[in-house]
Amino acid sequence: MINVQSVAHLARLTLSSDEEKAFEAQLSSIVQHFSEVEAVNTANVEPLITPTDITLVFREDKKLAVQTAEEAMKNAPERSGNLFKVPPVV
């Protein structure tokens, strides 16, 4: 059984009590569904992340001003000058 409450806390999500209840059952059935995968033999199989063979291209170290501070702040819910404002962090 998944402890939805503690996982939601780790993910910083407030859930309604209805959501909490529904998720518990739904997630359990999804996890149950996944358990079939355990049968696949994966010994010595390297996990695959990027599924296509792509050559890494580095970026050269050149700085570029792509936006102004004003643009950086454009969508800020709350600001003070050009700084983002949040509740006290200490």
Binding site: R59, K62, K63, L64, A65, V66, Q67, T68, A69, A72, M73, G81, N82, L83, F84
Partner: peptide, 15 residues
């Protein structure tokens, strides 16, 4: 690509 220099005006060195 934004500058890694010290200083800068508030949130100037961002992307």
């Amino acid at each position: 690509v934004d500058s890694a220099s010290f200083g800068g005006a508030d949130n100037e060195y961002t992307s």
